[in-house]
Amino acid sequence: MVIEDPKTNKLIEVEKLPDGTYKVTIYDKKTGEKKTITMSKKDLEKLLKAL
Score class of each variant (00 low, 15 high):
Ser40Thr: 13
Ile37Ser: 11
Leu44Val: 13
Lys35Met: 14
Ala50Ser: 06
Lys23Met: 05
Val2Thr: 02
Met1Phe: 02
Lys16Tyr: 11
Thr25Asp: 02
Lys41Pro: 04
Ala50His: 13
Val24Ser: 00
Leu47Val: 07
Glu33Ser: 07
Leu51Met: 08
Lys30Thr: 13
Thr38Pro: 09
Thr8Trp: 06
Thr36Cys: 13
Leu51His: 04
Val14Ser: 03
Lys49Gln: 08
Gly20His: 08
Pro18Phe: 09
Leu47Gln: 01
Leu47Lys: 00
Leu11Trp: 04
Asn9Ser: 05
Tyr27Ile: 04
Lys30Trp: 10
Leu51Ile: 06
Lys30Gln: 13
Met39Ser: 03
Asn9Asp: 12
Ile12Trp: 13
Lys35Trp: 15
Lys7Pro: 12
Val14Asp: 00
Ile26Gln: 09
Glu4Trp: 14
Asn9Gly: 10
Thr36Ile: 14
Glu13Val: 13
Leu17Asn: 10
Lys7Tyr: 11
Val14Arg: 01
Lys35Phe: 12
Tyr22Gly: 02
Lys49Gly: 09
Val2Asn: 01
Met39Thr: 02
Ala50Val: 08
Tyr22Cys: 02
Asp43Tyr: 09
Ala50Met: 11
Lys30Phe: 12
Gly32Phe: 13
Val24Phe: 01
Leu47Phe: 10
Leu47Trp: 13
Val14Trp: 09
Lys23Asp: 02
Ile26Glu: 08
Glu33Pro: 03
Glu45Tyr: 14
Gly32Arg: 03
Asn9Val: 04
Lys10Val: 13
Glu13Gln: 11
Lys46Ile: 15
Val24Asn: 00
Lys23Val: 08
Val2Gln: 07
Thr31Glu: 08
Lys29Arg: 04
Ala50Asp: 12
Ser40Tyr: 14
Met1Ala: 15
Lys16Leu: 10
Asp28Glu: 04
Pro18Cys: 10
Glu15Ile: 13
Lys49Cys: 11
Thr21Asp: 07
Lys29Ala: 07
Ile26Asn: 03
Pro18Val: 11
Lys35Gly: 11
Ile3Val: 10
Leu51Ala: 08
Thr21Phe: 05
Ile3Gly: 06
Lys7Met: 10
Met39Val: 03
Met1Val: 15
Ile26Leu: 05
Asp43Asn: 08
Val2Ser: 02
Ile37Leu: 14
Ser40Cys: 08
Ile37Gln: 09
Asp28Trp: 10
Glu4Ser: 03
Ile3Glu: 15
Leu17Asp: 08
Ile26Tyr: 04
Asp5Ser: 01
Lys46Asp: 15
Lys42Pro: 12
Val2His: 02
Lys10Ile: 14
Leu48Ala: 00
Thr31Ala: 05
Leu17His: 07
Pro6Asp: 04
Ile12Tyr: 15
Lys23Gly: 04
Lys23Cys: 05
Ala50Pro: 04
Val24His: 00
Ile37Trp: 14
Leu47Cys: 03
Asp43Arg: 11
Asp5Met: 06
Tyr22Asn: 03
Asn9Lys: 02
Asp19Glu: 11
Glu33Val: 07
Ser40Asn: 05
Val24Gln: 00
Ala50Gly: 05
Leu48His: 00
Thr38Phe: 15
Ile12Glu: 02
Met1Ile: 08
Lys35Leu: 10
Asp19His: 08
Ile37Gly: 08
Ser40Pro: 05
Leu47Thr: 02
Asn9Glu: 05
Leu48Asn: 01
Lys29Phe: 07
Glu13Lys: 09
Lys34Gly: 10
Glu15Tyr: 15
Lys46Pro: 04
Pro6Ser: 07
Ser40Gln: 06
Lys34Ile: 09
Glu4Met: 03
Ile26Gly: 02
Gly20Tyr: 07
Gly32Thr: 08
Thr21Arg: 07
Lys42Leu: 14
Leu17Trp: 08
Tyr27His: 04
Thr8His: 10
Ile26Lys: 05
Thr8Glu: 10
Leu17Ser: 07
Gly20Leu: 10
Leu11Gly: 02
Ile3Pro: 14
Lys46Gly: 12
Pro6Ile: 09
Glu4Ile: 04
Val14Glu: 00
Glu45Arg: 08
Val14Gly: 01
Pro18Trp: 08
Glu13Ser: 08
Lys41Glu: 09
Glu33Leu: 12
Lys34Thr: 12
Lys30Val: 05
Lys29Pro: 02
Leu17Tyr: 10
Lys29Leu: 15
Lys16Thr: 15
Ile26Trp: 04
Thr31Asn: 12
Asp28Gly: 03
Thr38Lys: 06
Leu11Val: 12
Glu45Gln: 07
Glu33Thr: 10
Glu15Trp: 15
Pro6Thr: 09
Tyr27Met: 07
Gly32Ala: 07
Leu47His: 01
